[in-house]
């Protein structure tokens, strides 16, 4: 283990180095086992098919399209959050990490970064699928604004998801507690995302309120990153 750490050592504080090491391990596991991202992508695409039949519409636009996209992505996050800590708990990886002489914040940073990357990967698949399957207006015009919104939302989702994942992982009914906790917590993101995306999907051009919704998402991400960094230590005490 020390040799491994030395080999991956790079400039930067110890927390970041430890976080990068854990993140690399998580990504390697994900690349080999493919447990989270393919399932999430499949879930998102299947949800689009369900929405097609549920609305009985071939093409969506405006607020319905924005809502469909955001609800699907937020529900997909639930799937990723459920997987985030379960494997660590089941196979004893967490105990090994807790034994290592590293700051616990590193574990949070690594888990949140992993969730962030999973979400980006899922959106790379889900967004084109949404454009092909359901979206009426052209996606390309609204792509820059939408990417900014999604990335900022992913940041908030990664922070809140890592916190909720760690909270729920210790409970007996974690498959239930995790989603029930996460869904109310992401309501502000659903509000900001859907409100900001709706004018993009009406085809009327750039929204004038984009800045304030990005601001709300930024505030959300900041608050939950700070909260998680402050509170994560208490979740991993034993």
């Amino acid at each position: 283990m020390p040799a491994e750490l030395e080999r991956t050592a790079r400039p930067g504080p110890a927390v970041i180095r430890a976080a990068v090491a854990i993140l690399r391990k998580d990504l390697r596991v994900e690349l080999r086992a493919r447990e989270a991202v393919p399932a999430m992508a499949l879930f998102a695409v299947t949800a689009f098919v369900l929405f097609h039949f549920a609305f009985d519409r071939d093409a969506l636009d405006g607020d319905v399209a924005a809502g469909t996209l955001w609800v699907t992505l937020l529900l997909t996050t639930v799937l990723g959050v459920n997987r985030l800590f379960v494997a660590e708990r089941e196979q004893g990886g967490l105990e090994a990490m807790l034994l290592a002489p590293i700051d616990r914040t590193a574990i949070f940073l690594a888990k949140a970064a992993a969730l962030f990357l999973y979400l980006v990967a899922v959106e790379v698949v889900a967004l084109p699928a949404f454009a092909v399957l359901l979206l009426g207006p052209d996606l390309f015009g609204s792509l820059p604004a939408l990417c900014a919104l999604l990335l900022l939302a992913d940041l908030g989702l990664a922070a809140v998801g890592a916190l909720v994942g760690a909270l729920a992982a210790e409970t007996r009914a974690r498959e239930v507690i995790g989603p029930l906790l996460l869904l109310p917590l992401v309501v502000p993101l659903a509000i900001a995302g859907a409100q900001a995306t709706e004018p993009l999907f009406t085809g009327s051009g750039a929204p004038e309120d984009l800045g304030r919704w990005l601001g709300l998402m930024g505030l959300y991400a900041t608050i939950f990153v700070l909260l998680s960094v402050a509170l994560f230590d208490f979740l991993l005490e034993d």
């Binding site: 502000p188 509000i191 900001a192 959300y220």
Partner: peptide
């Protein structure tokens, strides 16, 4: 607190 801000904005 955050949620009240968000809902009021909406």
């Amino acid at each position: 607190v955050l949620n009240f801000v968000a809902v009021r904005m909406a």
